[in-house]
C-alpha cells in the first residue's frame, strides 16, 4: 500500500509488511516519553533506597530502607504509632481521665459525659446495636420468618427505664463487663396446660398476682411477690406490660411452658455476651458504653427509684422514650 512508504510526515515505515497493508512507521517515541521512561526507572531505584523493598540483606532479614530525610526508616507500624499519637493528642484529655474513674464518677462529670454521649455512638452501633438496635431501641423479631419461640425482642430495649437487671450505672456496667444469661425454668412438666393458660392470661393483663397460682407455682420466687421482677436475677417485671419477648397470650404461654435459657430446645434464648472474655473492648470502652447506655434516658440515679411509667407496649414505650433522650444527646 502506498501509505506504508510515504506517510503524512514523510516518515518511512520499517518496510515490513503483514497481511497486505500492515506496517509500522519508524517514528521515534516522543521525547517526553523517553524522559518519562528514564524517570520511572530512576524513581524505582530511589524508592528502593528509601523504602523497604529489597527482600535480602546481610542481617538475614530484608533491607529496611533509609526512609525519607528526617523521618527515619519507614514501617507500617511506625506509621500507625504516629497516626495514633495525633489522635491521642485530641482525645487523650478525656480518655486519660476515663481510665482511672469509676462509671459513677464519670457520670458525675458533665464534660466527660458529654464526650461519651458523642464518642459512644460508633462503639455502641458497631458492637451492641446488632442486638439492642440503633440507639438501644431494640430489634423486633419479624414473626413470619421465625418460629414462634423466636418472636419478641432480640435483646432488651435500652432507652426505656424498664430494666431486667436494674438501671443504675453500676448494674449496667456489671452487665457489659460480665454479660448476662437470665434463666427461667421450663414449666411444661411442672404445670398443666390449664394452669399455664390461667397464669398466662393473668400475666398478659399485667396482673400476674391476680391468680393464686402465681405464688403457688413459685413464679414469685423469681418475679417477686408483687410480680415486678428481681433485678438480682434479671427476672422480668410482669406488671408493666413491657414485653421482652412476645406479649401475646400465645407468646406468654410459650415463655412459661419452655422457659428462658432453660435448656429446653424450645426455650427462649437470652444471652448477653461477656465482653471482657471476648477481649475486644478495653475496660475504658466498657465504662464508656455503660455511661452511654445510661444516658439513653432510662438510667436510674443510684439512690431514689423513679416512679414507674405505665407503658402500653414494648414498642410504644421504646419509641416514646426514644424521642427525648436521643434528641438531647445531639
Amino acid at each position: 500500500m502506498s501509505d506504508n512508504h510515504n506517510s503524512a510526515g514523510g516518515v518511512p515505515t520499517t518496510g515490513h509488511v503483514w497481511d497486505d497493508d500492515l506496517g509500522d512507521f519508524v517514528n521515534q517515541p516522543p521525547k517526553w516519553w523517553m524522559l518519562g521512561l528514564t524517570a520511572s526507572i530512576l524513581w524505582v531505584v530511589v524508592y528502593w533506597v528509601l523504602y523497604p523493598s529489597i527482600p535480602f540483606s546481610t542481617s538475614g532479614d530484608f533491607t529496611k530502607g533509609i526512609g525519607l530525610p528526617g523521618t527515619g526508616q519507614w514501617t507500617a507500624i511506625k506509621e500507625l504509632e504516629a497516626d495514633t499519637a495525633d489522635l491521642d493528642a485530641v482525645r487523650g484529655q478525656y480518655e486519660d481521665q476515663l481510665k482511672n474513674l469509676s462509671p459513677e464518677a464519670i457520670l458525675a462529670d458533665a464534660k466527660l459525659t458529654g464526650y461519651i454521649e458523642r464518642s459512644g455512638k460508633v462503639l455502641f452501633a458497631d458492637n451492641c446495636a446488632g442486638c439492642h438496635g440503633q440507639n438501644g431501641k431494640g430489634t423486633m423479631q419479624v414473626g413470619v420468618k421465625f418460629k414462634q419461640q423466636e418472636q419478641g425482642y432480640m435483646a432488651p430495649i435500652l432507652l426505656d427505664d424498664d430494666w431486667l437487671y436494674g438501671g443504675e450505672i453500676a448494674n449496667i456496667h456489671e452487665t457489659i463487663v460480665g454479660g448476662r444469661q437470665g434463666m427461667m425454668i421450663a414449666h411444661k412438666d411442672i404445670l398443666s396446660a390449664a394452669e399455664i393458660q390461667t397464669l398466662a392470661e393473668a400475666v398478659v393483663k399485667g396482673q400476674p398476682t391476680s391468680t393464686p397460682l402465681f405464688a403457688e407455682k413459685g413464679c414469685t420466687g423469681c418475679h417477686g411477690a408483687d410480680g415486678k421482677g428481681m433485678a438480682a436475677m434479671g427476672s422480668a417485671n410482669l406488671t408493666d406490660k413491657v414485653w421482652r419477648f412476645d406479649g401475646s397470650l400465645a407468646g406468654v404461654i410459650q415463655t412459661i411452658t419452655y422457659g428462658v435459657n432453660s435448656g429446653d430446645p424450645k426455650a427462649r434464648i437470652a444471652v448477653m455476651p461477656n465482653f471482657t472474655a471476648a477481649g475486644k473492648l478495653s475496660e475504658t470502652e466498657i465504662k464508656k458504653l455503660a455511661v452511654y447506655v445510661y444516658k439513653f434516658g432510662g438510667g436510674k440515679p443510684a439512690v431514689a427509684a423513679v416512679p414507674e411509667v405505665a407503658a402500653t407496649s414494648g414498642v410504644a414505650a421504646g419509641s416514646e422514650v426514644a424521642a427525648a433522650p436521643v434528641a438531647a444527646a445531639h
Binding site: P29, W33, G36, L37, A39, S40, I41, W43, V44, Y47, W48, Y51, P52, S53, I54, P55, F62, T63, G65, W74, T75, A76
Partner: peptide, 22 residues
C-alpha cells in the same frame, strides 16, 4: 506480609504508567 513486599509492588506500579501510556 512484610513491609518490603507491598512497597516493591507500589514502586513498580507507578513506573508502569509510562510504558502503558506508550
Amino acid at each position: 506480609l512484610p513491609d518490603w513486599t507491598g512497597s516493591l509492588g507500589a514502586a513498580v506500579s507507578l513506573a508502569m504508567i509510562i510504558p502503558s501510556w506508550g
